[in-house]
Structures are given as structure tokens and as C-alpha cells.
Design a protein around this nucleic acid. Structure first.
Lengths: 198, 198
DNA sequence: ACCTGAACACCGTTCAAGT
DNA sequence: ACCTGAACACCGTTCAAGT
């Protein structure tokens, strides 16, 4: 088996100029979305990338396709975070605190991202859906890892926990809060997820 | 003191036709927003109300002014719900379950409403801000009522609880879940809010 | 095979003309 | 004082013409 086991879909090679334009578009999208949020004008992205609007549509037929491309390494980073958090060990409370805080960092890349991720989680027709599955799986793995799993209350579902924390992320985003200010909300969630003795 | 102690701002009387158009616009907005969500076309609302687009703008300079007008009795309903829930009594868990479930009903009036309310909560320049204050106060009153208050964990802030439940509301909205499906998430929040013994 | 940019469509917003 | 609807602006989207 190869070193890269089907990283993404099939990455067919592009003509040199096309590849360059694609990269410029993704880079422009990153900066524009960070400045203006996920509803930023696509025209501005094309302008900043120095290409015609048609070129943007050729590469990314929908806004979500572009966002998906922007998130290329996002899924990988999430997987790595989950692994590192579980590997570092500690009490269930420490592990969850760290995991949720990285969760917020990853989901809140730009204004509107949290809401985008939340809606894509349940919309299998969205290009971002697959990436969200990675988040679902990573979150489940953390909750099912030792020593977290035995500390979790009966009936707590990983998917619901993820929705809750995504909700926190939306709240942080909308209120313009600093990530650290989310701590009181995360504490409530963690107290609700873990058994009282844990 | 009068029976209506400053219900809303000052309601200056409108000319008969203007008042009729205003009412038709609010009614049209209600149905269009329920069908198409909070980003629905304002033009369609004007059309359905049978008035020109200029008339809509005269009455409601911004989209949020229109939404605010739609929510005329919303704040009052919330106040009433809080009172009735506290009055009905029961264990802290029962009271919170009932209150949060009404919270979700009230905040999720149409697609996108939860997100709208969430962002207006922290944006004092929004016309909806004042109505959100009612929600903040009602929620605080429930949490500080007997027998709930002594059952709440130290350090739990009513405002954070409201943000969390609003997040649940956004999740329910985005995922297209039935209100009842929110129960597992609300359970986690309640377990995190109440002392383990309560 | 890919790019460009003019052209079109849609919708929010304004305003001169009407009553 | 209020309403109408044409006009404008902006932006997403398409496509004929180019390389």
C-alpha cells in the first residue's frame, strides 16, 4: 500500500496555470473569509486572486466547494489533535477540557465557520459533509478512549456532545468572545457529560 | 399607574392606510419567513403584502426592524412562560426541563431565528437586542427562583446557560431535528447546571 | 484545456412623481 | 403623510470568444 492511502478524492493533475490559479484562489479565499466571514463576496475573492469570476466557478462550482478546498488540512489537524490529546493522558476532565478547547480553535477559523460546520454535519449533500465526519469520528474516539469512557454518564451520545460544543462555538463566534471566555460554558458541558464522581 | 406600563416604545398613531399596510407586511413577513427562513427575499414579502418595495422600507428600514416587529408578542410570551414554569413548581430538574423546552419553542419560530436571536443577544445596535434582554432576564429569574437556585452549581452564570441553550436551539434548527430530539442535549446541560445531589 | 470578461438575472435600496 | 414603481447598484452565475 502507498504512503498516501487515498488522501482526498482522486487528485487529477491540472495544467500548470490552472493549478496556480486554483492555489491563488484558495489563498485569496482564506484571507477574504477571515476578513469578511463566510458570506464574503466571491467576486472579491476572484479579484484578489487576480482571475476572472469564471475561473473561480470553473474550479469551485459552489461556495461550499471553495470552503471545502480551504479546509484541506483541517480534517488532518483535527485527527492529530484528538490523538495528541488522548496520548497526553490525564483525568477525564483534563482531557475533555483540552479536547473541547482545540475543538473550538479548529471550528472557529473564521466568522461564520462554526455555523457552516454545524449545518454541514447533517447535510450529506454538502461538500463539507465528509470533513465533518472526521470531526464526528475524532470526537467519538476521544469520548471512548481510556480513561474518559468509564467516566462518561450513561446515555450520553458522542454526536449530541459534538452538537453542544459546536453550539458553544457558534455562541463564541456570534458574541465575538475570546476563546478563553468559553471556559464557563465548556465547564457546564463537561459536568453534564462526566459522572459526578469522575 | 396605567394598565400598560410602557409596553413597547412610543406607538404613535398611523394613518389608517399606513397602519393597514404595516399589518399586512408583518403578516406577510411571518408567513414568508416561516417558509423560507430569515434570509427570505424582502421583495417577496412586499409582493405578498400587496405593497411596493418602498412601502416596506418606509415602515422597516432594515430586515431586523421587520423581524423585531414580527416578534411583538414574543417577549411577552417568554415572560409568561417563565412565570408559569416557576409557578408550576416541581424539582429543579423538572422546572429546568420544562423551561428549556419552552425556550427552544420560542427561539425556534422559523428557520434561522435561533441564530438571529443569538447574534442579537450581544449586539446592542440590533433592533432585536431589547427583546433578547427579556429572554436574558426571564432565564435568570428561572435560575434564581426557588427551589432551583440552591440546586445550581457554584460559578454557573445565567448568561452562559442561555448561550448554551441557544446553541442547542441553533443545532436543532440546522439539523432539522424535532424539538423532542433535543432532550439528550438538554439533559447534558441540566446535569452540568445542577449539583449532582439535586 | 483553460481563461477572460461582457452579459444576464436577481434582489436590496432609493427617490421622483403621484394621491 | 404616505404610496408606487421605475431606476440604480451590487453580486452571483453563465457563456461566447479567445489562447
Amino acid at each position: 500500500m502507498s504512503a498516501h492511502p487515498a488522501a482526498e478524492a482522486v487528485e487529477k493533475p491540472l495544467r500548470a496555470d490552472a493549478q496556480r490559479n486554483r492555489d491563488k484562489l484558495i489563498e485569496a479565499a482564506r484571507s477574504v473569509f477571515r476578513e469578511r466571514g463566510s458570506e464574503a463576496s466571491l467576486d472579491e475573492i476572484a479579484k484578489r486572486a487576480g482571475v476572472g469570476p469564471g475561473t473561480l466557478y470553473r474550479h469551485f462550482p459552489t461556495r461550499d466547494d471553495l470552503i471545502d478546498a480551504m479546509m484541506r488540512d483541517w480534517a488532518e489537524r483535527i485527527r492529530a489533535d484528538a490523538e495528541s490529546v488522548v496520548g497526553a493522558g490525564g483525568t477525564p476532565r483534563v482531557i475533555l477540557t483540552e479536547w473541547f478547547s482545540r475543538f473550538l480553535d479548529n471550528v472557529g477559523i473564521y466568522h461564520g465557520a462554526a455555523a457552516k460546520v454545524m449545518s454541514a454535519m447533517d447535510d450529506s449533500s454538502s461538500p463539507i459533509f465528509r470533513k465533518c465526519q472526521v470531526l464526528v469520528d475524532a470526537n467519538r474516539q476521544v469520548l471512548e478512549s481510556e480513561p474518559v469512557a468509564p467516566g462518561v454518564r450513561d446515555g450520553v451520545d458522542a454526536r449530541q456532545v459534538m452538537r453542544l460544543v459546536s453550539g458553544v462555538s457558534v455562541a463564541v463566534d456570534q458574541a465575538g468572545m475570546a476563546p478563553a471566555e468559553a471556559e464557563p460554558m465548556l465547564r457546564i458541558v463537561i459536568d453534564g457529560v462526566l459522572r459526578p464522581e469522575a
